[in-house]
Design a binder for these strands. Structure first.
Lengths: 130, 130
DNA sequence: GTAAGCTCCGTACCACTGTACGGTGTCAAA
DNA sequence: TTTGACACCGTACAGTGGTACGGAGCTTAC
């Protein structure tokens, strides 16, 4: 089940060095070095890296991911509080992105209605004081 | 009309050093140094900085802003394509965050129904593949 | 005309998120 | 048993987006 670092990296589609970096950042645990042979990365660790990558995709920094991961040692009640806080920031992020979405939508549709190809409403609007 | 760097920075609500940084990055042109006195930042330059800041708010990197600036002379259609690409990634991010939101919601409500404080459904789920 | 307060400029530094390098150890196959 | 590939480890460097500092020079107000 467990894999060497390069197999793990390949499966995850990331660089070996990234895995080592996450180890240094304490985002994942470095598997113990066996007396003989290379470190073996268990499926659990690989899943955690996938979790990190997923969270990053969603706009979480590694620091935020670390917080999420630290939920591990705490009693359920505390985990819940942290999860609720996270939920609130997720909601804020969604709201922010939705504002962005509608701003971009407006701009793009202005472009659609624009007949003068040499004059762009997006460029205009970015020059204004919002 | 033109302003010294600190007046410009103040008007824009940014740090003086940020203006200098943009000059070094060639995002704005440094006004010529007069024989006597300090550099004068014309309204056009201030507008461009506003442009940069607005574009950043919309999630464009400085590199993308540089592209946008180069598009200034180009047809609207090309600007539109860039904006649409950005729009697509924003939509993806929103969808991802909404999935996360509902996952967190589920977990939190599971916590609510959980009686054993030493065993947390959220922790269980973090071990899993998202 | 002098002090306070700007500007100028180069350089250094910051956090973040990796990536690369070089020397050495280990493994597996021919 | 030798060879080539991979692992290990520490350290250095990279790109992004700034921020800080220090020693000049210049301006403005008193």
């Amino acid at each position: 089940m467990a894999k060497t670092i390069s197999k793990a990296a390949k499966e995850l589609g990331i660089n070996i060095e990234t895995i080592r970096f996450y180890e240094r950042q304490k985002l994942i645990q470095q598997p113990p070095k066996p007396i003989q042979g290379y470190r073996q990365y268990p499926e659990k660790t690989i899943e955690r890296i996938r979790f990190i990558k997923n969270a990053q995709e969603l706009g979480f920094t590694l620091n935020e991911v670390a917080n999420l991961i630290q939920l591990n040692d705490k009693p359920c009640a505390q985990v819940q509080i942290l999860a609720e806080q996270k939920l609130a920031t997720v909601k804020e992020k969604i709201a922010g992105l939705q504002r962005l979405e509608s701003a971009l939508n407006t701009l793009v549709s202005q472009c659609h209605h624009n007949l003068d190809d040499n004059h762009c409403p997006i460029i205009d609007s970015l020059q204004k004081n919002l």
